[in-house]
Amino acid sequence: MGFLFAENGINAVFEKWAEEYHVYAPKRMEGKGAFSDTDSVRYEEINKVEEIEFDLKSHFSFKDILLPMSETLFFFTEEQVKEADGPKKGAVILLRSCDLHAVRRLDEIYLKNGFEDYYYKRLRENVRFVLLGCKQAFENCFCVDMETNRADFYDASIEKDGDGYAVDNHYSDWEPLFLANSMEKKEVSPSYVTETEVRVEVPEGLSLDVSKSRMWDEYDKRCIDCGRCNYVCPTCTCFTMQDIFYTDNGKVGERRRVTASCMVNGYTDVAGGGSYRQKNGQRMRFKTLHKVYDFKKRFGYHMCVGCGRCDDACPEYISFSNIINKLKDAVAEVNDHDEK
């Protein structure tokens, strides 16, 4: 069922939601960009619809809520372990179609691949997703080619409609709340993008053999292994474990996990000094193939959702979509070489 809300009506919904949920949405953080007098758009808790940044792509994704960059798993003494508490409230997350598709990727790893992840599931079970309609594609988006431009598996959708807000609802529990606060019922179908300026083509015949292509060598020097592409990615799921002890009481501490990047030094280090993929080009290959090849081999669909945040974030202007498009020639190059 669809609804049309005035600003105060939708804010009444947000107010009601706040009793049960933390509401997270892309928000413009003034002055929080890396450069002075620039802003950062991040996922933050919001109270009012005016706080939502509808017109820009967020620099970091919703992932920061489901998989916090730094998350305490448990506290310990030398012989006891106490699990860290989860949030008391659930969460409503407002996100675009590409990101909603990314949730499926996170679920794949954290709920399925091997054991269920206790901490992820604890959060995930109490999350409601509200789709932000996309009226047009942003720079570097390539969701259409990754087939993530549309999503109907949302609890509700929201987008600006004239001076008001159009909402489509799939979650029956919210129906009375929406009825009570909306101006009118209305057929609503969320906007979605049908074309993007950036196009990608994942070639047929990809295999690990493409590792041998010379295309990766370029990134040995161009890439500065900062990890931004991973940290902003809504589908990257890696973490590293850390044990810390409190400086004021050395017997007590905590174990936490922090987001990890396969582009950053140390990612593959094993105790005793071994490491794999020392060249940045090979790290790029590893990441690229995970996003558009081996994840699909294991789970049946591509990991990359085409949000283009990695392109947006790269300080060295390395375009991931361009890398995908180079794969075709790389496959041919490797095949040629093998034939000779």
């Binding site: 691949n113 091997g114 890696c238 593959t268 995970h290 994840f295």
Partner: peptide, 24 residues
């Protein structure tokens, strides 16, 4: 195989090679 592992349960990603999780 021996690889870096932070979780042992297919989550942390460190041990992944191609579509294979060494831990799983």
């Amino acid at each position: 195989h021996e690889r870096k592992m932070c979780c042992g349960i297919g989550k942390c990603g460190h041990c992944k090679i191609d579509d294979t999780y060494v831990c799983l």
